[in-house]
């Protein structure tokens, strides 16, 4: 079991470290557009859409990495006061009643959301046609990655319970 949790950690670590530099690329695209408009009076016809798309992809695809590194907002006022065993119980309940339904919805609805766009070859409607479906597919991918990380946390909570028992 522990090997699965470790493999998930590694997967999300590697993935997150690949995605993170997108934030620099977003900056460069915006700067390029400002520069082009200011110096040549000819703004680019793709920067607006690409910036928006990269932004949406970046923070979503970083979410699982964030969960792996505990950056997501949580209020642990009560939780900290409890024993490790009780903390594990809270984790298990929380991941079952809040996390699991949400991820299930994101995965199933996210997939059909992507397919509706992909099957029609949806694009942006500017001077340049940029495919939209890769970004719509990001919700599905994000949910799968977060779900995996959630499974890793779940496995560890179960192990915590077992250790306490023995």
């Amino acid at each position: 079991m522990n090997a699965i949790a470790k493999a998930i950690d590694t997967l999300n670590d590697v993935f997150g470290r690949i995605i993170a530099p997108l934030i620099a690329i977003i900056t460069l695209v915006v700067l390029y557009d400002i520069g082009l408009r200011f110096f040549t009076d000819r703004p680019s016809d793709w920067a607006f859409d690409i910036t928006k798309m990269l932004f949406g992809a970046h923070f979503m695809l970083m979410a699982a990495y964030g969960l792996r590194h505990h950056v997501h907002v949580e209020v642990d006022v009560i939780k900290r006061l409890l024993s490790r065993r009780k903390q594990a119980v809270l984790d298990i309940i929380g991941y079952l009643i809040f996390f699991a339904p949400f991820m299930w919805m994101l995965i199933s609805l996210g997939w059909s959301f992507f397919m509706r766009s992909f099957s029609r070859g949806e694009t942006t409607y500017g001077m340049v046609s940029i495919p939209v479906y890769p970004i719509k597919g990001v919700i599905f991918v994000t949910a799968v990655l977060i779900l995996l990380q959630g499974i890793a946390i779940f496995i560890r909570a179960i192990q915590q319970l077992r250790e306490e028992r023995t």
Binding site: V73, V75, V77, I93, G94, F98, W104, L106
Partner: peptide, 19 residues
């Protein structure tokens, strides 16, 4: 309830939405 259980806020909000 979800917030004070110490569950990540984003998933509390999303989970409550689904339920």
């Amino acid at each position: 309830v979800g917030l004070f259980m110490g569950h990540p806020l984003a998933f509390v909000l999303g989970g409550v939405a689904v339920v």
